[in-house]
Design a protein around this nucleic acid. Structure first.
Length: 581
RNA sequence: GCACCCAUAGCUCAGCUGGAUAGAGCGUUGCCCUCCGAAGGCAAAGGCCGCACGUUCGAAUCGUGCUGGGUGCACCA
């Protein structure tokens, strides 16, 4: 149910007819032909670039092709006007019944309106968050979590088979640090004063871990060297941290399908196998890297290391997979992990990373490209910083003990819905300002409120109509006499609703969930504008006192807008509100 | 020094895989409450789309080179 693709089908059909009649040559490529809303609504309701795209290969002027098309398109009952404009645009106006049918279709399809099949069931893996399991999630993780989850919902809505995945970085030195930090809290739980040395994690969140350790081990680990407890406490603390992270994610309404452990990759031979696969392609060699230019580390010395020839895939330098002592770098298990994702049969991989991982993109794409023989694309979305404010004043976040802002702090302060919506009001590669005061502001400059308010208004008229005895189920409304919708403002709103499936396709194709938020804001804006016209022109009000038939038609339109707002908020993971308080 | 990201109205930002006269909100100015919710709406002013070349019927969008800002740059993850 996408009017734009339907009209494109019509246009291509008429072009075929022109080809058959000899007016156009055979063998034309239609791929670049688009049908879209015109920039200026005054131009019509749909515009196509067909004539301009075909002009050159057909050896004709855009105008000639456009005019031949006009004659044919006007023969279709859906098209009431078609005119050539500008450099060769073809502007179409559609019969009003098209928009009324659309409203009816929305009411019939409900939340499935806009659902797309462009994903074609293709399997996509979205890896996101992947915060180190050494503490609670902080604000820096929130945006990535929201974007990843919204993208997952969007792609699922557009026909992909989506897996949400979290990669637990439990294989490096940081979990040993966690273990030592937890051990001090364990000592503390026994009444000893903890020695939180430089380099350990000082946060209070480890106190419960220490108590849990006491409950489990009693005093058996006291005064023992770390060789006796490091592994056990590490695993125990990591598990507790992951439980905390899961709870944090749940507070944001984010749920992962798969948690993959880095540590679980070691000792299985999978790293060796992945590296061997690359070696078989002559992409692994022993070598020495040049010192980094400009900012040479003081202790730099040439080292022979095992290197991945990522330059063969566009990287700037080759990357080490083994340290000089022969142990793996972080990159190696990551290669194995991505190889594993490829082998699990995903058609497409997406990684959502913090912008500080930008230097990592090329080598990871190189590895996936090599390991999948170019068959599995890896898209890496870098999430830019969130800057915190309170009433316009920068909100300082100290890195010292315990004073960082956690995900919980944010959610407790403004709620999950507001957090999620605001995090999606920028594209991922642009920094985002988050003002604790402004996001709760109940005014038009707050997009969350504006969209929710639109939905509340829709529910408000529905309630009122119901109280007045107008049947208002979606089925009732779909059966209403929609011919009573004839004002340009009403048909214009229907046209905006008609853009929803197209927007879903565009957003999904680009992996850009933020587009949904912007579309919802526009739709809400149209609704508020229309609502306000009712102030001057009572015949435009949704509720028409004493005229249930017209009321039903107008409320059908409002409800259709509400269906789309709910669906859109669903993709953002935001709960639509029924009424404002 | 190199790589990646960003640069669009006074401010914060959209701009739909290259399209028409570049849009929205805030701010400024002027209107609109006997009216389904004015927590709002309408309208006006405001732009060498960072700069310069190039690609083509057509560039904010693509390419190259600059300028300015952010991020990251061997044995950290």
């Amino acid at each position: 149910m996408n009017l734009f693709t339907e009209m494109r089908v019509l246009i291509l059909k008429e072009i075929d007819a022109l080809v058959a009649s000899g007016a156009l040559p055979t063998g034309l490529d239609y791929a670049a032909i688009t049908v879209e809303p015109p920039r200026d609504a005054g131009h019509g309701e749909m515009a196509t670039n067909a004539a301009m795209v075909l002009a050159k290969p057909a050896g004709q002027t855009p105008r000639a092709i456009a005019e031949a098309l006009v004659a044919r398109l006007l023969g279709d009952p859906r098209v009431v006007s078609a005119e050539v404009a500008g450099p060769g645009f073809l502007n179409l106006r559609l019969a009003p019944y098209i928009w009324r049918d659309l409203v009816r279709a929305v009411l019939t399809l409900g939340g499935d309106y806009g659902r797309s099949t462009i994903g074609a069931g293709s399997k996509v893996n979205i890896e996101f968050v992947s915060a180190n399991p050494t503490g609670p999630m902080h604000v820096g993780h929130v945006r990535g979590a929201v974007v990843g989850d919204a993208l997952a919902r969007l792609l699922a809505f557009a026909g992909w088979q989506v897996t949400r995945e979290y990669y637990i970085n439990d294989g490096g030195a940081q979990v040993d640090v966690l273990a030592r930090s937890a051990y001090e809290r364990y000592r503390e739980a026994h009444g000893l004063s903890p020695e939180i040395r430089e380099g350990l994690y000082p946060g209070d969140y480890l106190i419960p871990v220490g108590e849990a350790l006491k409950a489990k081990y009693g005093d058996t680990l006291l005064d023992k060297g770390e060789q006796y407890w490091l592994v056990e406490i590490r695993d125990f603390a990591t598990d507790m941290m992951m439980q905390m992270i899961r709870d944090d994610l749940a507070a944001l309404d984010v749920r992962m399908d798969v948690y993959s452990s880095e540590r679980a990759i070691y000792g299985t031979g999978r790293i060796e196998a992945a590296i061997q696969t690359l070696r078989d392609m002559d992409l692994i060699y022993e070598g020495t890297l040049e010192p980094p230019k400009g900012k040479e580390p003081e202790d730099w010395e040439p080292r022979v290391q095992t290197l991945f020839r990522s330059t063969a895939y566009g990287d700037d330098v080759d990357r080490p997979v083994q340290k000089s002592d022969g142990s793996w770098t972080y990159f190696a298990p990551d290669i194995a992990y991505h190889f594993d994702k490829v082998q699990r049969g995903f058609d497409q991989l997406i990684d959502i990373l913090g912008a500080d991982h930008g230097g990592y993109v090329k080598r990871m794409k190189a590895a996936v490209s090599a390991l999948s023989k170019g068959k599995v694309p890896l898209d890496i979305k870098l999430i830019q910083l969130v800057k915190l404010y309170k009433n316009g004043e920068p909100f300082k976040m100290s890195k010292r003990a315990g004073t960082f802002v956690t995900l919980r702090d944010v959610v407790d302060e403004v709620g999950a819905d507001v957090t999620r919506f605001i995090m999606l009001t920028r594209k991922n590669d642009v920094a985002l300002d988050f003002d604790f005061a402004k996001v709760l502001d109940q005014s038009k400059d707050n997009p969350v409120f504006y969209v929710q308010y639109a939905n509340a208004r829709i529910n408000s008229v529905l309630r009122r109509a119901r109280e007045a005895g107008v049947p208002c189920s979606d089925a009732d409304l779909a059966a209403a006499d929609l011919a009573r919708l004839d004002h340009p403002s009403e048909l214009g709103m229907a046209a905006k609703i008609a853009e929803w499936p197209r927007l879903v396709d565009i957003a999904a194709r680009g992996n850009e969930p933020h587009r949904v938020a912007f579309y919802l804001y526009e739709l809400a804006s149209d609704l508020h504008a229309h609502w306000n016209r009712g102030n001057d022109d009572p015949t435009l009000r949704f509720f028409q006192d004493g005229d249930p038939a017209t009321t039903a038609a107008k409320i059908a339109l409002a409800r259709a807008a509400g269906v789309v707002i709910s669906a859109g908020l669903g993709i953002l993971g935001v709960t639509p509100v029924e009424e404002m308080r």
